[in-house]
Amino acid sequence: MDNPVRPQAAKILDIFKQTATEWTFRVACDVPVRHGQFMQLSIPKVGEAPISVSGFGNGYVEFTIRSVGKVTDELFRMQKGDTMFLRGCYGNGWPVEELKGKNLVIIAGGTGVSPVKSLINQMCDEPGFAKEVYLILGFKNSNSILFKEDLARWKAAEHFHPLYTLDNEDYPGWHKGLVTTLVDEVPLKSFGDNYACIVVGPPVMMKFAGAELRMHGVPEEKIWMSFERKMSCAIGKCGHCRIDETYVCLDGPVFNYTVGKKLVD
């Protein structure tokens, strides 16, 4: 019987430097992946960290990682051709089938764009996947902007309506302010009942973005969120990610707002 928590060696195929502290690692992998899932990345004698999948394709998976700790700092010392270790994928991803054919509003901040990037790319590559797609994406400043090529491609898509903003900087072609200030620009009432909203980012950002959507009359069941959480075993055994009776690694990281609003430590 295979050990469910045994990592497998994986070769780094390429590294894309997004910012000074956030890089995307493309790693050889043939494990089936769903939008919104995560994997456990590890380095022997250093440690392990849960990282959301930011992209995947034939024979590879991508992780956009911020250098903020022991494991991620060590990853940033690696080069193309080096080996890291993976296990997973884990968790429940975005409800893709429920989103098809709907108008979609996606609100994401900073590295919170990563868990939803592959889904946005599918919407962009398959025009019939969704009706109209409103992207409200925010970053702290121009030095922290991620996925610049993707942002430009999404902006050019006919059925996309991108609203890009920086928290505290004037920048050509961008709004200035928090993502919550741009919800007013989304014609929610014109969607009738055929729409869904996705929110990803730091907990405080998700709290206020969810509240803003509710103030605009969005029903709770139409809002989906992805929770950042320090998973350990990732299979519901250690209890490290447990909030009350909910195991984020098993029941999430994607939750409907009807459940997610209660997940407070």
Rank of each mutant, 00 (worst) to 15 (best):
A49P: 00
M225S: 08
K262R: 14
G252E: 07
A49E: 14
S114N: 14
D184R: 09
Y60D: 04
K230V: 13
Y134T: 09
F139Y: 08
A108L: 09
S114Q: 08
S52G: 14
V113T: 06
R26V: 08
P32C: 01
M225W: 09
F85I: 00
S42Y: 05
N143M: 11
V133A: 03
P203I: 00
L166Q: 04
E221P: 00
M205F: 01
T111R: 03
G55S: 10
K261C: 06
V199H: 02
F191H: 08
Y90D: 06
T64N: 08
N58Q: 14
V31Y: 13
L146Q: 05
P162G: 11
D14I: 03
F227D: 03
L188M: 08
S232W: 06
R77K: 15
F208G: 01
M84W: 10
M205H: 01
G101N: 08
V133G: 08
P95I: 08
N168W: 12
H175T: 10
V68A: 13
A234I: 12
K155I: 02
P172V: 06
S52P: 14
E212S: 11
I136S: 03
N194V: 00
I235E: 05
G69D: 03
K131E: 13
F16H: 13
I51K: 06
G217C: 11
M215Y: 06
C249T: 08
K189F: 08
S190V: 12
K131T: 11
N194W: 01
G88H: 00
I51Y: 05
L86Y: 06
Y134E: 06
M215L: 12
T19F: 09
D2R: 14
E62D: 15
D167C: 03
R87Q: 00
I43D: 00
M231Y: 00
I106W: 01
A49V: 15
M78I: 05
L182N: 02
V113N: 04
I43T: 04
A152G: 02
Q37R: 05
G109A: 13
V61H: 07
I120K: 02
G81C: 11
E74F: 10
